[in-house]
């Protein structure tokens, strides 16, 4: 867990991620009709079935294959000088700068500054009765937890076993499960925040939600 202010400063300094578009294998490169500064999109659609923007075509052994943008952003660099030349696998062909959205910034902030406790197996999860009562009446942020505390009941096909929390001590910042639905193994159940950072986290998240200027 890192200090949220520090993470925020980093994000402000570089409110984007940059990803290189590389040649998937050896071959002769022909760039498509794109130029630096163009907006590109990655795979979209409910099932990511709509391909991204066509950036180049790489041909090896008379087998032309499209190189597509993998995420949404702006084409920051395009190494046009490689057009028509033979390149090795992994040769950078361009750079896509992806500007972070509010949602992505909040997600990154929480990921870096809070601790996520994940489900060990696919099952339904409940808080133990005492905690459940407190969460329902006063909200989750009033519940302090510590390592080894019996916090959950795991319910799977009528088999119920207790589950102890393991991780740093703190308060439950948010709850990510619904008692009526199964949670997949590895999905976060709760995120935990050190008590002294709670107000700072709330403040930063609120500011991001209202003030963050999305780059695109």
């Amino acid at each position: 867990m890192r200090d949220i202010a520090e993470v925020m400063e980093e994000l402000k300094a570089a409110p984007y991620t940059e990803r290189e578009v590389c040649a998937p294998h050896t071959g002769v490169i022909r760039f498509a009709d794109v130029k630096e500064g163009d907006r590109v999109s990655g795979f979209t659609g409910t099932w990511k079935e709509i391909p991204g923007t066509h950036i180049a075509t790489i041909t090896r052994e008379k087998n032309p294959r499209k190189v597509l943008a993998s995420e949404r952003g702006v084409l920051q660099k395009l190494y046009r000088e490689l057009d028509g030349s033979f390149v090795e696998a992994g040769t950078p062909l361009g750079v896509i700068r992806h500007y972070l959205t509010r949602q992505e910034v909040v997600s990154k902030l929480l990921k870096e500054s809070l601790y996520a406790f994940c489900a060990p197996e696919r099952a339904k999860y409940y808080f133990v009765p005492d905690v459940d009562k407190k969460v329902k009446i006063l909200g989750c942020r009033t519940v302090s937890i510590h390592d080894g505390m019996e916090l959950f009941i795991v319910s799977r096909m009528k088999r119920e076993v207790p589950l102890c929390y393991s991780g740093p001590a703190g308060i439950i910042y948010d709850v990510y499960f619904d008692q009526t639905k199964n949670v997949d193994s590895g999905s976060p159940l709760i995120v935990v925040c050190p008590p002294e950072q709670q107000s700072a986290v709330e403040d930063v998240v609120a500011r991001v939600q209202s003030e963050w200027n999305e780059g695109e």
């Binding site: 294998h25 090896r60 052994e61 008379k62 087998n63 294959r65």
Partner: peptide, 20 residues
């Protein structure tokens, strides 16, 4: 009879090598 390589449409997901 064509002397060329062919890519599997699932090569990105399943890591298939090109075939002659």
């Amino acid at each position: 009879r064509e002397d060329r390589a062919v890519s599997c449409p699932y090569s990105a997901q399943r890591g298939c090598m090109d075939m002659w």
